[in-house]
Every structure is written in C-alpha cells, then in structure tokens.
C-alpha cells in the first residue's frame, strides 16, 4: 500500500515539474537534477513524516504509561 502511494506521488510530482524557461543549450544533466529533486522531496518528506509520527507515538506512549503509573500509585 505504502509503495503504491509513493508511486502515485512520484508520477504526480514528475508531471508537476515543468520547465519554465527554455534556452537552446544542451545540458544532459538537467533531467538528472530534476528527477533528484522530485525523488528527494518525496523520500525526504516521507523520512521527516515517519520521524514525526515516530516521535508523536513515543510521546503518547510515554504519556499513557505515566498516566497508568499515577493510577497504580493512588490505588
């Protein structure tokens, strides 16, 4: 499921990166730079997203286990 989402996003971003200014100059590296930006944005975003979710989960787990400790102390 996660791979399918990544694939769909990759295609969307690929189509979205449309050159604005065109010059008559042969630069075979431009395409490679463009695709890195697309992939890097996706993967970098996923990495940051995963990290954020991980941190959030860790926060809630700690909060929950602290709440349980307080309940046990009171009873």
């Amino acid at each position: 499921m996660c791979s399918m989402i990544k694939i769909v996003l990759a295609v969307i971003f690929y189509l979205a990166v449309i050159p604005k200014n065109a010059y008559g100059y042969l630069d075979p590296g431009t395409g490679s730079y463009a695709i890195q930006i697309i992939i890097g944005f996706l993967l970098g975003g996923l990495y940051v997203g995963r990290k954020a979710i991980g941190q959030a989960m860790s926060y809630f787990t700690k909060m929950f286990s602290r709440h349980n400790d307080d309940d046990e102390k009171q009873s």
Partner: peptide, 22 residues
C-alpha cells in the same frame, strides 16, 4: 520507476534545455 523510467523520461524532456528553475 523513479531512478530509471521517470529519470529517462525527464532526461529526454530536458535534453536540449538548460533550466534556471531546476
């Protein structure tokens, strides 16, 4: 898909262009 197929397409699309944006 990304490192080969789309990479090849983007190379072809931008082969004769230098793009300041990118």
């Amino acid at each position: 898909l990304t490192h080969i197929h789309l990479h090849a397409l983007k190379q072809k699309q931008l082969a004769n262009r230098q793009n300041e944006y990118i």
